[in-house]
Design a protein around this nucleic acid. Structure first.
Lengths: 345, 345
DNA sequence: AGCGCTTTCTCAACCGGTAAAGTCCCAAAT
DNA sequence: ATTTGGGACTTTACCGGTTGAGAAAGCGCT
């Protein structure tokens, strides 16, 4: 990483050309008062002619502001590639960052320890002004780390998981309940759920909510399994559910993301079962993918882009000194499509 | 983005604690010779006790090295979310960057002009040490921009598109030819192709190669359409192909990514056509998705992760002064699965 | 004319590192 | 005994901005 041979133009060159001091150029470029209109124009003209832009690195150093926010995603790369969720989330984050001419420092990490180390290193090394933390789990070490470092962060996760950190979250419990109620209302009595990674806090919450909803509706066994969110795992889980004895076999399955629901659809087809006649499937997150299958997938639909945007907005709030808070975003909404119907009795 | 109130520890504190000068600490932390083993240890101990890490910003400023590389992706956010390609590519890039403790600055942009502006601004503002450019098109303005700025970049695209820039690319023409030959060998005579964005250079090349291959094999019309890579567009294209008069209806369709192939599969199902009996489908890129459908999708399989890694490695080469070069990565390989078979005559 | 007040700009000290040149000391060579 | 040569550090001058403390000039007012 050596410098380019090309002679870089600095604030000094601009100042010289405009016939003013460095300080004046700085004032002009930061839109601060104390400069005559004419001088300001002259400075901008000089900068334009020389093709100068302030060196962000130098600016960060002297002003101790950093226009970069961090995001570390902690899932195996193989799985990431397929999760539409993250890309959409990132898009949403970006949409807000761009307005503030702020950039996103992205890193994929293998585990939570690595992430804690990375965030600390980013912060200590003044690489970022704050960070968006995702995929919270119970007793998440990032809560303590962020507090200890005094690092501005927004935690994407339920307040019960994020301690004193400012959080942005969806009400998964309510959404799960709604999903179960909907399927029960269609007449399903044996409803199963293919969950996400058991270690993640929101999986735990969804699992509990699913159980509670099933119990309160007097449904048979609430059959749930945890997976790693991959399509393969979703297929395996579906296969094991659909090959159960007829009396145990679920007539409806809820998935924790849409990729597993797509895999479930394929498994049903491969087993000669018709969706939704023989089994109903309900996806989660509702990316474009749900509308590209046959039948189309009913889903708990969720504005992931907006979720990311809200996380970024909230982070700016934290950075500018807003106290801790809890920012719920709209609860996922049931969007019925072709994969759910009353059970075939 | 104001500084945290917490008192940040600097190199001076570490130096004081270890009883040496700033310079000595710098030497130690950069693993440079000229320090006694004992002193080195003392310095590291002091740093550890104080929880100090070098301020990357300051380091960049004085050494004019920047440990960040840029990547701007220019496609509508909505489409991005679904393209497994990019996340896998990014994972590959990251895997190499991490080894060099380098970070990725990611930004989604709406159009090429915005990207050129962004890259220039990143470079001028010394935010990045180099950049990975993707999605080349004919007469791409980024070629001239990178040259003009003397900015180290690696261009992901065919050398014919990337001018004097160092390029990393796959031989799409050969892959397309192979795909067509394979389908022809199965007995297909009416082969269609659902391409990607017409503006992109590699789409143009694939289109030309498809035409050439069809002609040389004496196949009927080489029916091709361009899309925006979205599943919706893939579905629409497939629908229009499969509703054509029987004598025109293709018996095999090649897609430019896997998401469109999945959509095509759904369209076939929706029209009551059986895959591969009535129509064969061949996907591209081959993410996990291709193995999650029923039938599974045959694909032109491609190590996207490795592609990203190679791009990153090459960028490091450019940054460290290697002259321009052309780095082909392995040609996509045909991976037959359940969606291709001889036509049903 | 003298005084206080703005407005407009300059100066110099930083921010937290790096790097080249300089200092000191001691062992080996002449 | 004097020179030579390193090794082990320290000094100092940056890197390219920001920032707060002045300074100079212009202006209204008594």
């Amino acid at each position: 990483m050596t410098a380019s041979p090309s002679p870089r133009v600095t604030i000094k060159d601009v100042a010289a050309r405009a016939g003013v001091s460095k300080g004046a150029v700085s004032l002009a470029f930061n839109h601060k008062p104390g400069l005559a209109e004419a001088t300001r124009d002259r400075i901008f003209a000089a900068a334009r002619e020389l093709g100068w832009e302030p060196n962000l690195t130098a600016r960060s150093l002297s002003s101790s502001r950093v226009d970069v926010v961090g995001l570390a995603i902690c899932r195996p790369a193989r799985m990431l590639g397929l999760e539409p969720f993250y890309m959409e989330f990132v898009s949403g984050v970006e949409s807000v960052l761009t307005e503030h001419s702020c950039s996103l420092l992205l890193r994929l990490v293998r585990n939570l320890d690595e992430e804690v180390g990375l965030q600390e290193s980013w912060w200590r090394g003044r690489q970022i002004g704050g960070s968006i933390l995702v995929d919270f789990r119970a007793d998440d070490p990032r809560v303590a780390a962020a507090e200890r470092l005094g690092m501005p962060v927004v935690a994407v996760g339920h307040p019960s998981l994020t301690g004193s950190l400012t959080s942005v979250w969806t009400d998964d419990a309510t959404a799960v309940t709604e999903a179960v109620r909907y399927l029960a209302a269609l007449g399903h009595r044996r409803i199963a759920r293919v969950g996400g990674a058991a270690a993640l806090g929101h999986t735990v919450m969804r699992t509990a909510a699913f159980d509670a909803a099933a119990r309160s509706l007097g449904l048979a066994g609430a059959w749930q399994v945890a997976t790693d969110y991959s399509g393969e795992a979703g297929a395996r889980a579906t296969r094991s559910m659909l090959t159960a004895a007829a009396s145990d076999r679920p007539t409806a399955i809820v998935y924790d993301n849409d990729i597993m629901a797509v895999a479930g659809l394929a498994v049903a087809a491969e087993m000669g079962l018709s969706v939704p006649r023989d089994v109903s499937l309900l996806a989660w997150d509702d990316s474009q993918l749900c509308r590209l299958t046959h039948p189309t997938l009913s889903a708990m639909s969720h504005d992931v882009f907006g979720f990311g945007a809200e996380a970024a907005r909230t982070l700016f709030g934290v950075i500018t000194g807003e106290g801790p808070g809890s920012h719920p975003v709209p609860t996922p909404v049931l969007t019925p499509r072709g994969s759910t119907a009353p059970p075939n009795v």
